[in-house]
């Protein structure tokens, strides 16, 4: 069980410092919080013309939440906001065990490696924290553009 969760890939992403920073030209910053464990992340996105030009995060949490956030950020760069929203929905559906077809999940790239978390109910919130935060950030950025 453990070797399917704590893989080299997860270890690498959870320890990576590359995406862990303040984004200078952030157009939206969203704080995500998991009250049951106290984990929190702050996600920053630089969005221009409906495209995510750059993304970064700061925060503290378990290896699963940190790796998930790191992989999400790498996936987001260069994607349109609409695509990002769809990918977040796909990831959350995967973690909730609603989609397990590997072909369908392929576009999640490395983040598809977290599929096994769907068998660990206690860790679902860790894996989805960043993606729910992304979803909220996009909702807020929609609100901003409407305003």
């Amino acid at each position: 069980m453990l070797e399917n969760i704590y893989t080299e890939l997860i270890a690498e992403h959870s320890q990576s410092k590359e995406n862990r920073r303040q984004l200078e030209n952030a157009t939206i910053t969203e704080r995500g919080h998991n009250p049951t464990c106290g984990d929190e992340i702050t996600l920053s996105l630089e969005i221009a013309d409906g495209v995510i030009r750059d993304a970064a995060f700061t925060g503290e949490g378990c290896a699963i939440s940190q790796a998930s956030t790191d992989m999400m950020i790498e996936l987001l760069r260069g994607k349109s906001v609409d695509e990002a929203k769809r990918l977040a929905e796909l990831f959350i559906a995967m973690i909730h065990g609603e989609i397990d077809d590997d072909d369908e999940l392929a576009e999640l790239d490395e983040a598809a490696a977290l599929k096994n978390i769907s068998t660990m109910p206690a860790r679902v919130k860790c894996a989805t924290l960043a993606w729910h935060t992304l979803d909220t950030a996009i909702k807020h950025s929609d609100g901003d553009s409407l305003a």
Binding site: L2, C37, C62, A63, I64, Q66, R123
Partner: peptide, 13 residues
Amino acid sequence: DVHPHDVATILDA
């Protein structure tokens, strides 16, 4: 360097 939730998962196993 290890978050308590990861510790608890590893102990759980």
